[in-house]
Write a protein that binds this DNA or RNA. Structure first.
Lengths: 131, 131
DNA sequence: GTATGTACTTACGAAAGGTAAGCTGCGGGG
DNA sequence: CCCCGCAGCTTACCTTTCGTAAGTACATAC
């Protein structure tokens, strides 16, 4: 697909989010990943252990939970605390930076929760239109 | 993995986002999908045509853009207007509902853009720790 | 009649994600 | 002793999703 003429008058609206090679894109993917956002929201409440998270977040596999937590830790949103008890105990909590992020994500998730009915209704209408 | 003992005292923090069979989860996936959030943010600015979106959002394929737009339309966030000109022209814009959503998503994306430096710095430190 | 413009679809290979089993290290029951 | 269980991952394997590139339709322009 060639570059359309209407492009000549268009400027990229904001920052660099829309450039595919910008690291901003990676970070957004991390925090909006399927499990990432759920982990952040649940950690807003308090710290949790690995197995607690695995059970609270319905449908997550241990593999994906571990991967998600590792990424969020690398990005500086989550803190991993190992307690050398027997058997070992690993607690995850949000960093202050992660809490700032969590406020934004919670705003989004609670909006989605509160308006899920509207969306479901619209989906039903849209599918009637197709049939 | 069996249900751990510490679970007995835990209650699910909020709503139903954490139940794997809740439609809320699907909706969240739609709006936080790789391309979904970018489309919503860019449509906050003004309406755009298909090919314009394809060029503004770096790295998106036409296939994924079409799929993303169809989903956002079904959910009631985006409106699709076909102008029967020759050649045809299709405009996409946010519904009022989509704009409410867009405010939440923009809050998140602008936070990420503004704090990308912090994240990159933390990633670099984390990788030094490993080496 | 060949090429262009617009908005998609479709086929196919690559990559991400899910499932389930294994691993380590220690303590307790038989 | 020996094996099981607990906790927190990790690995192997397979399925689903995604990206790439080509094709479609229809009309006008060359």
């Amino acid at each position: 697909m060639p570059w359309p003429k209407s492009m000549k008058t268009i400027r990229i609206p904001k920052g660099n989010l829309f450039a595919s090679d910008c690291p901003t894109r990676d970070i957004l993917d991390d925090v909006t990943s399927r499990w990432g956002s759920l982990v952040v929201v649940i950690l807003m409440e308090r710290s949790y252990r690995f197995s607690e998270l695995a059970y609270l977040i319905g449908g997550v596999s241990e593999k994906m939970l571990a991967q998600t937590l590792r990424i969020l830790e690398e990005d500086g949103f989550v803190l991993r605390e190992v307690h050398a008890t027997k058997p070992p105990k690993v607690e995850y909590r949000l960093t202050p930076f992660g809490q700032e992020l969590g406020e934004r994500i919670s705003a989004l998730t609670s909006f989605v929760e509160q308006n899920a009915g509207r969306v479901m209704a619209h989906r039903a209408k849209a599918r009637q239109g197709l049939a």
